[in-house]
């Protein structure tokens, strides 16, 4: 298959962007209704990035924050985090990391670190270490214990975000397994999620 940025932007892939953004919004909404301890607000971005690649993933992440930012502008800078997660997830998918257990574990760990670092950049540089939510208490504890601001924020993000990132990726993968192969075959990055048997049928037909 051909690769390249332009090649990724098929009409089908473009249409997945609004769906991905809405799924993240709904994921967040459902996790608050069910009072879950994790926020599934990356579910759409990771899912779309996995099947439609890094660039579509990047846009899905960024656009989500931009749209939220219409009512809450502080969400806009955090788009940087979503962009990083979308881009990274897309590349992990491209490198076939989600097809085996070892790869999934590494992807989860790397994803968590990337999310923690990128979020720290925004939080420290723009908002003085604050997100305006409950996790700030953890950061406050680190600071009160005499830690530097960067170490405190990164530690907080790793503590609060790792489980979050991994669960988001895991649920996205779980859902992709249920997407019919005839849909996946039309996407540039869907190939790896099609059961092996069917991939052989495809090769024979080709």
């Amino acid at each position: 298959m051909k690769q390249g940025i332009k090649h990724d932007f098929t009409l089908l892939a473009l249409l997945l962007i609004p769906v991905g953004v809405s799924l993240s919004v709904v994921g967040y909404q459902l996790s608050s209704i069910l009072k879950l301890p994790v926020y599934l607000d990356l579910i759409g971005t990771t899912l779309v990035a996995m099947i439609a690649g890094p660039w579509i993933g990047l846009i899905t992440g960024g656009l989500g924050n931009l749209v939220n930012g219409m009512l809450n502008p502080t969400s806009i800078p955090f788009g940087f985090v979503s962009i990083c997660v979308g881009l990274a997830t897309g590349y992990f998918s491209k490198w076939k990391m989600y097809t085996n257990v070892v790869g999934i574990v590494i992807a989860g760990a790397l994803g968590a670190v990337i999310a923690a670092m990128s979020s720290a950049v925004v939080v420290v540089l723009l908002f003085g270490g604050v997100t305006g939510s409950g996790v700030d208490l953890i950061t406050a504890t680190f600071l009160a214990a005499g830690q530097q601001i960067w170490t405190s924020v990164i530690s907080t993000n790793i503590i609060s975000g790792t489980v979050n990132t991994i669960i988001n990726m895991a649920i996205a993968l779980f859902l992709i397994k249920r997407i019919p192969p005839r849909f996946l075959v039309k996407l540039n990055y869907g190939w790896n999620y099609i059961p092996k048997k069917l991939r052989e049928v495809f090769k024979q037909n080709d």
Binding site: P181, R182, V185, I194, L198, V201, F202, N205, D206
Partner: peptide
Amino acid sequence: MKNVYYQYPLEK
């Protein structure tokens, strides 16, 4: 249409 045959990519 003349002698048209078609097969979906994932079907035998």
